[in-house]
Design a protein around this nucleic acid. Structure first.
Lengths: 339, 339
DNA sequence: GTGAAAGCGCTAACAG
DNA sequence: CTGTTAGCGCTTTCAC
């Protein structure tokens, strides 16, 4: 008989069970839960009491199917090896998880490389997510192109030239310009820049800031002292050799990874910071803070970036359009490495 | 008429559409796709050809509902702040994503803190995942307790005393014992240990290894030189002051975060490594490799750990039981910091 | 070898 | 204010 099933302790409680138990219809139960549609306070109360008491948990899968919504946000992390070393993505993810949960969403993560977005395609074609957050921005951005083509709501943490794309970023070029100007007016005649992969928009913007920081005080950056594509130890070491042949006062790095190698190399060569040469970074990290001497850098609250991205995506999914670009604050932290 | 709907370009192709189009039943299409049940090679071929041609994507949500399976693995990341700085979790996650995708699973992440597992409860009660991977192991482990009570398949990356729990880890105590012995027999009389939070099983095991490393060569670790709970700068600095009053030859740290602070502090105090004092770490990182001098440490392939965990969980979900504990290899890397 | 029909648990017109 | 009914897209008995 049917009761056998219903009495089975392992069986999860459904909306139908509650309906039977309370002598109501499934619709009414559904309404009591969602609050949609008209329903008397009395029945609503009865239903909600029953739910509390019996610890009912709605089946989100069923809801998903009925509403064609997954209540999942997709987060795309780069799996290009060197990037896994950056705490940036992790902090950002934490922020996203936090907002997601507070809006009753969950987070599905997937990885891509610069030229392989198969795993992103997977979660889209399998209908696993309602929208996507990209955690970096590239010059030739496959994910952006793909998501636009497929009309999937998405936001990017970072900046792009593409005006239709919703972007959440800190104002890297402004921040870098500001720090650069500060360095220049505080007695540093010649700055050298060690910049990362120019395929990454963030690095481009930081370099732009470096150049603007010069312009802002009517100087011109020395092209011979700008090194791009500093992806590995060997390249950085070679750049430093070149730099030390000029009258450079301060080495500026676009990120903490480059900076960390720069500091190690200077140490190896027995140069002392800041006595022999100063060092600053456009991206802060605990390592740079812990370093001796502590390193001047630009601080951004990455988790907040994730939170903002999550909130925007959820609004986008709900169909609420807003301004396309959102900037979060930064902070310039002057430390001993440039004093 | 019904055709209006069917001709709608935006509508996703369903199993029913294919059935109509090919003059077959939904059942047959389903069988052709899954390979389950009897079906003629000819029809199977026809269906698969149609699918390729029209780029059909099955709706996993519907499949989930029908099979009561989500095809999602839950990954629990700690959101206790200091841990976000560790690339460990990120690398581990990359590994999990990789296996997941290769087995047609996706990855849902959540966060917990030492004493708040509300977000883990969320994904379980909402039926968002078929199983869970815990990425750290605590002495008083709320997630483990909760998952056991609710009979959810799960594996932990790390070790626990609880024998029923499926564990994937590297053999920390053995590795640490080995490194400790090596240090002792190569001329270091007195070793000091700076250990992290003992609530984390991994730190306990590393400390155990440190002590065993002494025993193995018939020595005894000096209790006065073992410092636990080294969670912050101030505590570490104070420990170092104490250490420098003894005849310590080498400072051993349980992880790279502690080690990074140790190196910075020694530098501040104008001690030179390895001339004045040697330094080693039980956990390697790019920072320690990039440091000058490079730091002796224990290397483990974290991504591999994630891969193993993912594979085990997928088997567990499929109902395949296996041995409870799995150890992956480690490697001891001797560098200049202890020479 | 194939199909009809029921069902997974929920939502959403449409009636009353 | 509440119930009836159909449906989301797929799987799975059970017949034929």
């Amino acid at each position: 008989m049917a009761d056998i099933d219903k009495n089975n302790e392992n069986r999860k409680l459904t909306i139908g069970d509650i309906a039977d138990e309370l002598g109501l219809s499934k619709t009414t139960i559904s309404r009591a839960i969602s609050g949609k549609g008209r329903i008397s306070d009395e029945t609503k109360r009865r239903v909600q009491e029953y739910i509390k008491e019996h610890d009912y948990r709605p089946n989100l899968i069923a809801k998903s199917l009925a509403e064609s919504k997954t209540f999942n946000l997709g987060v795309v992390l780069p799996s290009d090896t060197n990037l896994a070393e950056t705490p940036f993505f992790q902090s950002c993810l934490m922020g996203i998880c936090e907002v997601a949960a507070s809006h009753d969403y969950d987070v599905v993560v997937t990885t891509v490389t610069e030229d392989d977005i198969a795993l992103l395609k997977r979660i889209i074609f399998n209908h696993k997510v309602d929208g996507v957050i990209l955690t970096r921005s590239l010059a030739h951005d496959l994910p952006v192109q793909f998501l636009k083509e497929n009309k999937i709501p998405f936001v990017v943490v970072g900046s792009t030239e593409d005006e239709d794309v919703v972007q959440i970023d800190s104002n890297h070029s402004a921040a870098c310009a500001e720090l650069t100007s500060i360095l220049l007016v505080s007695g540093n005649e010649n700055l050298a820049l060690l910049a990362g992969n120019q395929e990454h928009i963030v690095n481009k913007n930081r370099m732009k800031g470096f150049i603007e920081g010069h312009k802002n005080i009517s100087k011109k950056a020395n092209d011979n002292l700008i090194f791009t594509g500093m992806n590995n130890k060997a390249l950085i070491d070679r750049a430093i050799d070149r730099i030390m042949m000029y009258q450079v006062d301060c080495i500026v790095c676009t990120d903490d990874l480059i900076c960390s190698r720069v500091l190690a190399r200077l140490n190896e060569l027995n140069y002392s910071v800041p006595a022999d040469i100063k060092v600053a970074s456009f991206y802060n990290s605990t390592f740079l803070e812990n370093h001796n001497p502590p390193v001047t850098a630009i601080n951004i609250n990455v988790k907040e970036l994730g939170v903002a991205a999550g909130e925007r995506l959820i609004k986008l999914i709900a169909g609420e359009e807003e301004k396309q670009k959102e900037l979060i604050n930064y902070e310039i932290v002057l430390k001993k490495s440039t004093k």
